[in-house]
């Protein structure tokens, strides 16, 4: 466990108990999650794997407070989601969660530094401090020289690194990355992955990452496998890649 610097490992950052999510589609119930129980601990590094349609993204949205479960108990940062209003949930997202998406989701026609500073806008941080913190964060992801570039002036890997900086600029406890390398070629993807692992190790932010890559999954400390909306395996792998 040498790579783990998370000082509070063992404390639950997110706790899901028998969580379910059923979509209503033209009056038909589509169960995407059917009773998921898991805990994301502070500083954790979790790989979420499973076939397409197994509910990985749905689970990520719930863990990040972007969506609400239709059943079960979900506690994010010590707060029970079902008891929170929409603005309270928004604030919880802002303070404890960082999202990284497959499609980057950067604001077009907006500079890298302004993209990174966006979460701070909703936290009420002043403009100058926002820029300082965003610039520093861009420095940490190796883009200190690209502050005023717009997304269309950046490569895919650079764009995803901007998105990672944006996710981390608020110092969240959990970083949720849904196939963060899915839109990148393998070399660039590997670099982005390395960056995520480094940030997890350095700052102690818990990393939950959806991936289709078995090798990548093997590098995580924990591997959660899903199928048909349930967790079918939750195994500690460790640096040596101990499978179950």
């Amino acid at each position: 466990m040498s790579r783990t610097l998370g000082p509070v490992l063992g404390v639950a950052a997110i706790e899901a108990v028998d969580v379910s999510r059923t979509y209503q589609l033209d009056g038909v119930s589509v169960p995407a999650l059917r009773g998921v129980t898991l805990t994301v601990e502070a500083g954790d590094y979790v790989a979420l794997i499973g076939p397409s349609g197994s509910g990985k993204s749905t689970l990520m949205h719930l863990l990040g407070g972007l969506d609400r479960p239709t059943g079960g108990r979900l506690v994010i940062g010590g707060r029970e989601v079902s008891g929170l209003s929409a603005p309270e949930l928004a604030r919880l997202r802002n303070e404890t969660i960082g999202f990284v998406f497959q499609a980057f989701h950067l604001l077009p026609r907006t500079t890298a530094v302004d993209n990174v500073a966006l979460p701070l806008v909703y936290r009420g941080v002043g403009a100058r401090q926002r820029r300082e913190r965003a610039a520093a964060m861009l420095g940490r992801v190796g883009l200190g020289h690209r502050l005023d570039h717009r997304p269309n002036q950046l490569s895919g890997g650079e764009q995803q690194r901007v998105a990672i900086a944006r996710a981390l600029v608020t110092d969240p406890t959990v970083l949720l990355a849904d196939e963060p390398t899915g839109n990148l070629d393998s070399t660039t993807g590997a670099a982005v992955l390395e960056l995520l692992e480094r940030l997890n190790a350095e700052s102690g932010v818990a990393l939950v990452m959806v991936t289709h890559d078995g090798e990548v999954a093997a590098r995580a400390r924990r591997r959660i496998t899903m199928r048909d909306g349930v967790v079918v395996a939750d195994t500690a792998t460790g640096p040596g890649g101990v499978g179950s």
């Binding site: 972007l66 603005p87 997202r93 802002n94 989701h105």
Partner: peptide, 16 residues
């Protein structure tokens, strides 16, 4: 729409 979704993901309230 995606911009709105992203803003919400990073903490914008419906009111914002």
């Amino acid at each position: 729409t995606r911009e709105i979704g992203l803003r919400k993901a990073v903490g914008a309230r419906p009111r914002d």
